[in-house]
């Protein structure tokens, strides 16, 4: 069963930036674009399980801080070696100034 989970205030994430969000034993990366739209992906790089929230957001890509692999965080597509496997994405929305993501509840 999936449900919307409250993450944080929108202002807690800078424009064109990312934060780590842990919930239910899982870790996510939650992004805010330059124009304020929000997105969510798995929190760990598919290459070596490094937290993407320590990486760099550039336009619609997130760069892993360890090996500089890149993903499109809006689609999850792997863009640059050494990442080959796509990143799981999750619906995200703004509601009354708060960011929410939709994930499977255990």
């Amino acid at each position: 069963m999936s449900g919307w989970i409250d993450v944080c205030d929108a202002e807690d994430i800078d424009l064109e930036d990312v934060i780590r969000f842990d919930h239910g034993g899982r870790t996510f990366a939650v992004y805010r674009t330059l124009d304020g739209a929000v997105f969510a992906t798995d929190g760990l790089c598919t290459h070596e399980k490094v937290h993407l929230a320590d990486g760099l957001v550039m336009d619609d890509t997130i760069e892993c801080p360890k090996h500089n692999g890149r993903f499109n965080y809006q689609t999850g597509a792997a863009l640059r070696a050494p990442v080959c496997e796509a990143l799981a994405t999750y619906p995200a929305r703004l509601r009354d100034g708060r960011i929410e993501i939709e994930v499977e509840q255990s």
Partner: peptide
Amino acid sequence: RWSHARHHT
């Protein structure tokens, strides 16, 4: 490229 990724890991 892959060898160097491992070097950093």
